[in-house]
Design a binder for these strands. Structure first.
Lengths: 151, 151
DNA sequence: TCGGATGGTTCGATCGTCGAAATGTTAAGG
DNA sequence: CCTTAACATTTCGACGATCGAACCATCCGA
């Protein structure tokens, strides 16, 4: 019998461990957590239609507009991100990550992906389906409690 | 069929969501992530024999000794943590959290625990066992890749 | 008793973040 | 057109978390 408290503890350990991994990546690249976070968000936005803008990035990161400008200054100076003003609404700035940044991330996270894939070899499709359902339910529960607290 | 990349994405979403939850808690208590992290570590140490000390805390948080002193200054000033010099080795400082801090954390995380418990009602013991194994394997894989990168 | 080692704290400097003000751009009304 | 308001982003001055180095107190081995 698996107690719920064990599952809670495992989830917590997992987040701590993921956190440390991201932290290590940041150290190697001489980048802070915030900058990494921003990079990930800008990269994600490539799949969601429009490119990321500074203001949307600020909101997603729960950061002030001015702090976001600093983040982008750093990312631009380090050659990871490109700022281009939108041609149709010249107030807006479009953010794009250079391929170099993508390759860098891939190089670092590939070993992790491989290790995870290997660790998951012992699970058949039915079991993976259970896990996926479980994770989705946990995400949903956490998000809804948070939404309720914000109200 | 559940693709591994879906599982990877779910894990990432989960860590992001957990992160946001902790962030919200911090905002409500006017405490920074570092301070929360420290509180959690000091609380955890209660079950591991000796009470936490500033230097062990610094190492666990990947923080300098002086920064850790600041963290403890803040936690002491806000009435969450007590510093007492060890009686046998008077160089050492023992850290203890006040019951008030424990109650505070419980009050905030109880809704989350309840929501998770409810979300997990649809899973029987065998399925929970699968999930627990999966999480443990993922934690182990992440930790070992990180250890390999540090070397 | 002395000297090095250990555990914490203090101090000055750096840097990420904030809020307010400034700059440049677009849209709506007269 | 011209003015005004709204918008997107950046600049500026201040605050505070973190760092490394120096410092103080304590313990332990020679």
């Amino acid at each position: 019998m698996v107690d719920n408290s064990i599952l809670v503890r495992l989830l917590r350990q997992l987040t701590v461990e993921s956190d440390r991994f991201a932290e290590l990546f940041g150290e190697r690249q001489r980048m802070h957590r915030t900058d990494l976070n921003a990079l990930a968000l800008i990269m994600d936005a490539r799949w969601t239609g429009e490119p990321m803008s500074p203001s949307r990035l600020a909101e997603a990161m729960h950061l002030s507009a001015s702090a976001t400008t600093s983040v982008l200054d750093r990312l631009e100076a380090s050659g990871h991100v490109e700022r281009t003003r939108s041609t149709h609404d010249r107030r807006k700035v479009e953010l794009r990550v250079y391929d170099k940044a993508l390759d860098l991330g891939r190089a670092f996270f590939t070993p992790l992906n491989e290790a995870l894939t290997q660790a998951w070899e012992g699970f058949d499709d039915a079991e993976k389906e259970v896990v996926a359902r479980f994770l989705a339910a946990s995400i949903e529960a956490t998000a809804s409690v948070r939404a309720g607290l914000v109200e």
